[in-house]
């Protein structure tokens, strides 16, 4: 009789723990587009924004552009997830004929690098309000500098620039960092994320 007991957790697999699996890749692909799709259909969002009004409007939602990256990192918890997802999102945006070509891919990549750096600062070990806030905020600065040259904001004067920068940072924390954590925590409760690191971490916590 077959008495072979096979516990599949071979050392080879362990070593590869930080490599993306196919599921990771597919999830990142989906997250890269779901954000864009939701935004195009969210008439509600636009209402909300107009209600809030003002020229700082674009800055307020800026965090939403990097949310898929923070969320991907928060679920997959491996180095590179945020950068990969955001880069992909940028490419899809271009192919859909949407924004401004190389500009948007640059924005996507710099956002991704920022978020990535945020989680790297915590050595991909901390996944809480603090680390998502830091990642959310770090998506902002590089692109801010680049875009002020692209679009010629840099001629506007210091006070306006600082104000815009402040709003963007805040937006990064709330609409990118915190929101990702909120969504991630809801998803993991519905058992949809079986097999992802976020679910394993949660189970480990429950055991404690």
């Amino acid at each position: 009789m077959g008495e072979t007991v096979k516990v599949v957790q071979s050392p080879k697999k362990k070593a590869k723990a930080n490599r993306f699996t196919t599921v990771d890749i597919v999830l990142m692909a989906i997250l890269a587009i779901v954000n864009g799709v939701a935004m195009t259909y969210l008439a509600m969002l636009n209402q909300l924004l107009t209600a809030l009004g003002g020229p700082i409007l674009t800055s307020i939602t800026l965090g939403l552009y990097s949310i898929s990256g923070v969320l991907a990192a928060y679920i997959i918890r491996k180095p590179g997830a945020a950068l990969f997802t955001l880069t992909l999102a940028g490419v899809v945006q271009i192919l859909s004929g949407n924004p401004n070509g190389l500009i948007s891919i640059t924005a996507a990549v710099t956002d991704g690098l920022g978020v990535e750096l945020g989680f790297a600062l915590f050595r991909y070990k901390r996944w809480d309000w603090l680390s998502v806030s830091v990642s959310g905020i770090l998506a902002v600065p590089v692109w801010f500098v680049i875009s002020s040259f692209w679009f010629g904001y840099y001629k506007w004067g210091m006070s306006i620039l600082l104000l815009a920068f402040g709003v963007r940072c805040l937006s990064g924390i709330v609409t990118s960092g915190w929101l990702s954590k909120l969504i991630g925590d809801i998803l993991v409760k519905t058992n949809l994320l079986k097999g992802f690191k976020i679910d394993k971490d949660r189970k480990a916590k429950e055991v404690k």
């Binding site: 890749i25 692909a29 799709v37 259909y41 990969f84 490419v91």
Partner: peptide, 18 residues
């Protein structure tokens, strides 16, 4: 190609999601 292919997957699912 494992990574590059993710672009296909993304494009493939855009209309479905929409």
């Amino acid at each position: 190609y494992r990574y590059a292919y993710s672009l296909f997957v993304a494009l493939r699912f855009v209309p479905t999601l929409e």
